[in-house]
C-alpha cells in the first residue's frame, strides 16, 4: 500500500465500478420517483382545510428535514423487522431516501402552488369546477413549471446522497469501492475513482438543470 497510483489496478477495477454506477443511478431514479409522488401528497396535505392534517404534515416535513438521512435509513431498515416486516436493503433504502427527498420536494411544490395567482382559483370556482378537477386541470399545470429548478437541484442532491445506502448493504458505487478496498487493501484508486465518477455525472447534470432553468425562464417571459 502506498501513495503511488497503479493504472493496471485502475483498469482492473473500473468495469466493476462502472457496473455499480448503474445501480447508483437506478437507486437515485427510484428514490426520486417515490419522492416526487410522496412530496406532492405532503404538499397538498398542507393545503387542506383540516387544521390537524395540515399541522401533522408540516411537522412531519420539518422533522424529516432536520434529522440526518443516514439515521433515517438505519431506522427504516432495523425498525421494520421489529414489527414483523423484513425489508431488503433496497426496499428499506428506497423508502428512506424517497421519504427524505419527499419532504424537500414538498417544499418546492408548496412554493410552486403558492405562486399560482388567487384569481385562478376564483375563476375555477366561478366555472363550478370541483377541487380535484381544479387542481388537475388549472392549478398544477401552472404550478409545476415553477417547480422545475428546485426539483432539478434535488435530483442532483439525491444522486449525491445514494452512497449513504451502502451502510445497510445496498451494492451501489460506494459499497463496491469499499468491498474492493477491503479485498485488496488498496483504497487510493477505488475511492478516488468513486469521486471522479460522481463528478462526471453530477457536474453535467447540474449544468443541464441550469440550462433547463434559463430556458424555462425565457419561455415564461421572466427574462429576455
Amino acid at each position: 500500500m502506498g501513495g503511488n497510483w497503479s493504472w493496471d489496478f485502475t483498469l482492473q477495477i473500473l468495469p466493476r465500478l462502472i457496473e455499480a454506477t448503474g445501480y447508483t443511478l437506478l437507486a437515485a431514479l427510484i428514490g426520486y420517483l417515490i419522492a416526487m409522488v410522496l412530496g406532492l401528497v405532503l404538499a397538498l396535505a398542507q393545503r387542506t382545510p383540516w387544521r390537524v392534517l395540515t399541522l401533522i404534515a408540516r411537522e412531519f416535513v420539518e422533522f424529516i428535514r432536520s434529522t440526518p438521512l443516514i439515521l433515517q435509513i438505519f431506522f427504516v431498515f432495523y425498525v421494520a423487522p421489529q414489527f414483523g416486516v423484513r425489508l431488503s436493503p433496497w426496499t428499506a433504502g428506497m423508502i428512506a431516501i424517497g421519504l427524505h427527498y419527499a419532504a424537500y420536494l414538498s417544499e418546492v411544490y408548496r412554493g410552486g402552488l403558492e405562486s399560482v395567482e388567487k384569481g385562478q382559483w376564483e375563476a375555477a370556482t366561478s366555472l363550478n369546477l370541483g377541487t380535484a378537477h381544479c387542481y388537475r386541470r388549472i392549478i398544477l399545470p401552472q404550478a409545476l413549471p415553477n417547480c422545475i429548478p428546485g426539483m432539478g437541484n434535488y435530483l442532483v442532491g439525491i444522486l449525491k446522497d445514494t452512497p449513504m445506502l451502502s451502510v445497510i448493504g445496498v451494492a451501489e458505487l460506494m459499497h463496491t469501492a469499499n468491498a474492493i478496498g477491503t479485498e485488496t487493501y488498496r483504497f487510493l484508486e477505488p475511492f478516488t475513482l468513486v469521486g471522479l465518477i460522481f463528478l462526471c455525472i453530477s457536474l453535467p447534470l447540474a449544468e443541464l438543470v441550469r440550462r433547463a432553468e434559463t430556458r424555462l425562464r425565457r419561455k415564461l417571459g421572466l427574462v429576455k
Binding site: 502506498g2 452512497p163 475511492f191
Partner: peptide, 24 residues
C-alpha cells in the same frame, strides 16, 4: 467549490480518512 459540491460528503470523508494517510 465544484469538487466539494459535485461529490458526496461520505466519499469525501472516506477519502480524507483512508486516502490522505497514503500520502503521509
Amino acid at each position: 467549490i465544484e469538487i466539494f459540491r459535485g461529490t458526496s460528503l461520505l466519499v469525501q470523508l472516506y477519502w480524507i480518512f483512508f486516502v490522505l494517510p497514503l500520502f503521509g
